[in-house]
Design a protein around this nucleic acid. Sequence first.
DNA 1: CATAAAAACTAAAACGTTTTAGCTAAATAA
DNA 2: TTATTTAGCTAAAACGTTTTAGTTTTTATG
Lengths: 345, 345
Amino acid sequence: MKKKRISIKDIAKHLNVSVTTVSFVLNGKAKEKRISEEVTKRILDYVKKINYKPNQLAQSLRTGESKILVFMVEDISNYFFSKLARIFEDLAYDKGYKVLFCSNENDDKKSIELIDLFNERQVDGFIIIPSAGIENKIKSLQEQNIPVVLLDRYFEDLEIDYVGIDNQKASEQGIQHLIDNKFKSPSFVSIDVQQTQMLGRLEGYRNIASNENFEAKELLLPYDLKSNEQGRAILKEFFDQNQDIDSILFATNYLTQLGLEVLKNHFPEKLHNLGIITFDDNALFSICTPSITAICQPLDQMAEKTMELLFELIKNKKSTSKYSHQKLDTTLEIRESTLSLSERS
Amino acid sequence: MKKKRISIKDIAKHLNVSVTTVSFVLNGKAKEKRISEEVTKRILDYVKKINYKPNQLAQSLRTGESKILVFMVEDISNYFFSKLARIFEDLAYDKGYKVLFCSNENDDKKSIELIDLFNERQVDGFIIIPSAGIENKIKSLQEQNIPVVLLDRYFEDLEIDYVGIDNQKASEQGIQHLIDNKFKSPSFVSIDVQQTQMLGRLEGYRNIASNENFEAKELLLPYDLKSNEQGRAILKEFFDQNQDIDSILFATNYLTQLGLEVLKNHFPEKLHNLGIITFDDNALFSICTPSITAICQPLDQMAEKTMELLFELIKNKKSTSKYSHQKLDTTLEIRESTLSLSERS
DNA sequence: CATAAAAACTAAAACGTTTTAGCTAAATAA
DNA sequence: TTATTTAGCTAAAACGTTTTAGTTTTTATG
């Protein structure tokens, strides 16, 4: 007993004009197509009166535009991604687009499945936080002339728009901050994956190690961690075997969380003496004890820049405009965890 | 220079059969429609060879099904919601549906706009975490025979499917746990809003207060908090004026966060002596000091149940099957913040 | 050998738009 | 008056499917 929605045809019939005329008026082409003011007004009034809304599906089918964007992240339940999603949502809606979010779990197979899936649905554009091995898939999207912007990480040999941060510099600032606060031997905990963001962070660390002349102590957890449990075990071993480190830079939010758990449970005294910095802020880091110093990515700015690039692509579908790599600056949110020991209560 | 996608018509032409035949075969109706095995095989083989994928828009236009669901939450960047979203995502994809997420900011106007927006797009179903005043809009969706399931909260006089927790019981368990651990005077911090989930939590608190004979101390923050700053100020005042409370149940994640900030900054000694429980867990609560006891909602179970109800509605669009109110059980994740004082280190 | 029944397939309408190409009537020019 | 231009409007095709209501061919039946 589905009530049939009113269509443009019904309107045309009711007003004794043609479907074409109604369509022209609705699309704001009344002037251009020389529809008289009188008819234009009649149509507009009636449409408002019955609160007619065009069928988007039919529009999309005809025009080839779905007004849907896809935002593909590692895991939408991770704060860094969900926060970005929240911003994208607003930006897109303002322009009349909706955003479909999906999680690729940083897995190539899943990523490719998802891209294919949405591609079949003729979405109008992709914002992708790519897993390590989907360079070719991305390239094939480009070849089909489908707008794509990469976020957070990119591929060295792909000419494509990208927005992210200057990871190396961010890392350097973080480590330098530790050094400035009298920590002598900062270590670095990250994931062993060949992705630009992680490589940049690692390089930044190594640079300062060499500049400041301390021995680099790196822990790179396996890319395909089986469980949090396994992660914690590896971290515990690292702390056991490196009693001399006096500070740590965690390269992601998730690692920080694991690390803090291990410290809290197995090395409670260390938790209060270690210098700790994390990439990516989270509201709760300010209420930990000690509160955790964080390298903050400029989420709003990143989202805005990304959308800007994407909409440029959507507009000039033809011209493969020169691609742009945006590396934005981070800010250091300084909290208790990097106070030099003498300053701590 | 857009490459034209291959259509069913191209296939038909190439194989010298009719479009109808191809369509039947692709829809698995070969047997039913008596298409010969030979033709069926030829079509299937060719389709696989050229990797043809039907145009979903056209399918949707014709069938009236978009295979898109909407999940409307308060704020997708909030962990409770984004975690649910992550689960829904997988469940839906398994059934061939995509999920559009949107954030209503618990605001009626925004909620209604969003619902209208998606309704025009003929989505196949809604999962809604409703703001307080959209009862009528929800009802109108029902009247249009559009599948809707409410989550987290519901409306007393609306006959509609709903999934959530037993808020009253959860609250009672939390407070009882405080009492059992020798806290004499638990207080309750919540939001002043007429929504079932909040009312239930409040009622649970009051019940135990009356059973255990302690004076109820409630702080209900305004529904339309201007800023975190304002929230912190109100909380600080509450703590200042109620020095005698020895424990708190925070009714949401967000309030817990604000509360902990205030405690950490203004009442550091209290932070370690107060009994603290929060509704809704977050990975980081286990690494706070003290780690925070949490009332955990069974997210997986909630998501599954919700999908189950929604798909039932989608299937039997006609029969207004009897609606179901699912109130699931929570679990208490006991951590340091509710150890009785004698047990604390 | 006609006829009925079953098997195998298909033409065309429909979903709701947009847009091209053109038509008609009025106004203007010659 | 006739030809031309312009204003105002519209028929019909197209987007890519699904599905109804057939038609044609083959096989079985009396």
